[in-house]
Design a binder for these strands. Structure first.
Lengths: 121, 121
DNA sequence: CAGCATCCCGTGGGATACTG
DNA sequence: CAGTATCCCACGGGATGCTG
């Protein structure tokens, strides 16, 4: 007889899936970058522009994060044909699939902050 | 005239909200613990049981994570009146509010994995 | 059993400077 | 302008052992 009770202790499948997501979207900047690119999809987002707009990120970290995101097909990198070479980054169709997730994270954070404020009164 | 265009560059409010969420739920284990407690809410989840079920976590890390979660009212800690003292942890009502978020993360991870597999064919 | 004290290591990520 | 090279540090988190 096979066990037909609940899933195994830690629900391995779900845990793996969480880890996958965390690996790809985790860290301090990835979600912020994706969110930024999603909402500025109509603009030309060059490396410099992103670096300027996302407060506190260094060029080293930005380039690394963008590379990771590009590897996972979340972001598209295009070299522009301009005099001082410039590079344009944009969100991919697939990258847009993260937006509901991101909004959820944003909303939870906002609600949490409100709750905390209320409780401190 | 006030600017009525779009939000400021990095959408500061949203960025802060993301950071809040990441601070509270980020890291390697918090989501896994919350997910675990949510799905085992009908059981008595002692420290030992959790440690046994969540593969790979050490007692030091587990106790730290639980403390953090308790501080943020996501988890409830109750000392049991047993001979060798035992402690029961359970998800709070508030803690349950993370579940939709977690499911979203799980689902994104699963979809991503499927996508990756398809593309490697 | 719960969980703290120690020790320790890898690495995410910051600062600065440099190159094509 | 885009991106790399170094250097460096804080800290998340693992292993082991100890105590109430």
């Amino acid at each position: 007889m096979k066990k037909v009770t609940s899933d195994p202790p830690a629900c391995t499948g779900n845990v793996l899936a969480m880890r996958d997501t965390l690996d790809i979207l985790g860290g301090k900047w990835k979600l912020i970058i994706l969110h930024y690119l999603t909402y500025r999809d109509s603009e030309i987002n060059t490396f410099k522009k992103i670096e300027r707009d996302i407060e506190g990120i260094s060029s080293k970290v930005l380039s690394k994060e963008l590379k990771d995101l590009e590897l996972n097909k979340l972001v598209i990198r295009e070299v522009q044909n301009t005099k001082p070479v410039s590079v344009k980054y944009s969100i991919s169709e697939y990258g847009k699939s993260t937006e509901t997730l991101i909004l959820q994270i944003v909303n939870w954070g906002k609600k949490h902050r409100i709750k905390m404020i209320k409780e401190t009164l």
